[in-house]
Design a protein around this nucleic acid. Structure first.
Lengths: 109, 109
DNA sequence: CAAAAACAATAGTATTCACTAATGAATTAG
DNA sequence: CTAATTCATTAGTGAATACTATTGTTTTTG
């Protein structure tokens, strides 16, 4: 179940430092289990599972069950909503400052 | 006063839909006052001011008082922490966003 | 000077959130 | 089969959050 407002869900998922650290560790590791994620983290295994659920609902992570373990992996297209949002407003700035530079150039040759 | 963990503060500031809408409207407008922001928004003027305070503390926005009005405008380097984070952990879009990150750094006066 | 306008700040409230502790379900090991 | 391992889920709790309503401050207007 993917959230309707994807930008909001992705940003909210990554806004929490603990949850973002979990995501970063998943990205760095190709595949990683919950126990491995719990080790080296300051929170409980239940908290890790809750963060994984949030990341999964945001489309940032996917899971691969194997036996009693569940391997987590970063979803490549997960950051795309955030990338689109940034490229949109980054482009806004680029155009604005391009115009400003041109304006200053015209005023003070 | 800028927050210590800039990535967290920027993401947290933009995670809320109402506050992000305020920021987007500031970006689209070159300069805009609080009453103008309140018009067209579903929340109170006090709520807008609180969101502006959060955006300012995150380094996303700056203010220019003039008489009894206060004009708000987007801070060009505000999105840089987010761009840096994305270029690092979004390996998938690294090439795509290398240009944007460099652009945001070049814009800095 | 008095009224209005623009904005910030505060107190209060309802909701959400991140976490722990405990339990449950499923799989593997001895 | 029994015990242990892995993970998800739930209830409960304290803290944070987004909002309204109100008040206060500064500046403009009539």
């Amino acid at each position: 179940m993917i959230q309707p407002d994807t930008v909001t869900s992705v940003m909210r998922a990554l806004a929490d430092p603990t949850r973002r650290a979990v995501f970063e560790r998943i990205v760095q590791s190709d595949e990683i289990t919950v126990v491995e994620l719990t080790r080296g983290s300051s929170v409980t295994q239940g908290a890790i599972s809750q963060h994984l659920k949030a990341l999964k609902q945001a489309g940032l992570v996917c899971e691969r069950p194997e036996g009693r373990k569940v391997y987590y992996r970063a979803e490549p297209r997960g950051l795309e909503p955030l990338a689109d949002w940034m490229s949109h407003y980054g482009a806004f700035w680029r155009d604005r400052f391009a115009d400003l530079r041109q304006l200053l150039k015209d005023i003070d040759p």
